[in-house]
Simulated assay, not measured.
Amino acid sequence: MNRCFSRIAGLRRGAAFAALVIAATVSMSGQRARGEATLGIGDKAPTLDIEHYVQKGKEGFGEVTDFEEGKIYVVEFWATWCGPCIQSMPHLVELQNKYRGEGVRVISISDEEVEKVEELLEQDYPGREETFGELTSAYTLTVDPDGSVSEDYMQAAEQNGIPSSFLVGKTGLIEWIGHPMELDEPLAEVLADRWDREAYKEQMKRQEQFQIAMQKVNQLAGSGKFEDALKVVDKLLEELKSQDDPRSNLIRKQLTSFQYNLRLDSGDQSDEVMAFFRKQLNEAKSDNRELTQFSYNLMASMQQGTDPGALAGETIAALNESVDSADDEVKPLMYVLIAQINASMTKFDEAIAAQKKAIEASTGRQKERMTQLLEQFQEMADSQDESEEAK
């Protein structure tokens, strides 16, 4: 699950696709070098010294300092500029509404200024007929500009990617740390008193070691040393063979996918590589959201210089085949992806035509952003025409 992260300095254009997949694989790209974490699984959750409560939830939850025994808390860190944080909001609403009567409380914390968050809350949430404020009113939304809570949790646990959530169990101990989109299973297990904290602690230790190795891969790919990067990936896959738990199996699957992304990023358009991606594309066609994610990753890599060959046209075709049946929430993004992939191939007429459809499918502030992107495509087309005339 993607998180907001800082792009690696010196990342060359051809390595962007690899970097994107690393982010999805380890769920924690852009971390600083790890030191000695002072907050981990099984430790007592620090008290919350939050400066501002912007929204306390529909039930009128009060402010929280210490954690009440017998209740469960999700302490989540986010920011207005973080796309994955925004995408996680509906899921946090779903979890809060589902477990509201079972002593579960979601508390989201941003270290931005109050005015910045309040400005976002007044805007329309993309694809929904409600504002950010109306959507997130289900749970507790807070602001802590001095960053003290982030220091107690994020820095202490060596967690630098957001969104990031800490599951505080019935006895006030940290039970789980991870992406809020992955909360469902641990939250349900903690509620049912079935959570194996020690097993998860060991699993997280292995994951940290894996992340350190993947940082090395990221550095190698960023400097164009694809062969060396692939050797590290091969070694990681060999080590994972002896681990047969759900998380290791998922990492193994994602790491295998990364191998092929890295090969494509290096310019490998062999039959084997193209067959792998065509299989992914065909599987994604059954779910518009999966197709959108696949297309987004491809588009982002193309914008950084990766040449996916015929896969670009095939992805556009798949999007065109599926867009008419897509939900209103997803349809504008699918048209945007069609436009951007075409633009990456300098097919600006096709890009402009698709972007106009994206505008028609959009509402509110989203339509304004879509119009701005159309203007950019038109400027790029005009620039291309001028260059051709100059020749």
Rank of each mutant, 00 (worst) to 15 (best):
E122R: 15
D146T: 14
R197Q: 14
A312C: 13
L183K: 06
P145S: 15
R194D: 11
E68N: 01
E134P: 01
A221K: 03
L191A: 07
F67C: 04
E51V: 09
D152A: 15
D124M: 14
K201T: 07
Q355K: 05
K231N: 08
Y200F: 15
I86Y: 10
R206N: 10
E388I: 15
P308M: 02
G178H: 12
F67P: 02
K279F: 03
H179V: 01
G127K: 14
L48I: 02
G161C: 10
F67H: 04
A188D: 07
G70L: 02
P186W: 05
A381Q: 14
G147L: 10
L183M: 15
N320I: 01
E59W: 00
Q372L: 09
G35K: 13
K205M: 12
E115G: 12
L311K: 07
D49Y: 01
T38I: 01
S88T: 11
M181H: 08
E51T: 12
D268T: 05
L291W: 07
F5Q: 00
Q254S: 05
Q254I: 00
P246T: 02
K56Y: 01
E368P: 10
A199I: 07
D66T: 12
E182Y: 09
K170V: 01
S148L: 11
T346K: 15
M28I: 01
V233R: 07
L39E: 09
D245P: 06
V104N: 07
Q372P: 00
Q215I: 02
Q304L: 00
M302Y: 05
A23D: 15
H91P: 03
D382V: 00
Q31F: 05
Q87Y: 11
E68P: 01
R13W: 02
M302A: 10
G364E: 14
Q155I: 13
Q209F: 04
K279H: 09
V149Y: 01
G30S: 05
D144R: 11
G40L: 00
G35L: 12
L240Y: 08
G222S: 08
V75A: 02
R369P: 00
S322W: 01
T171F: 00
K253N: 05
Y125V: 09
S150E: 13
D66Q: 11
I86R: 15
E151S: 13
E379M: 10
V54A: 04
T80M: 05
E388Y: 13
Q159V: 15
L319K: 00
A33D: 07
L281Q: 06
S383C: 00
E63K: 08
R369E: 14
I338S: 15
L255H: 03
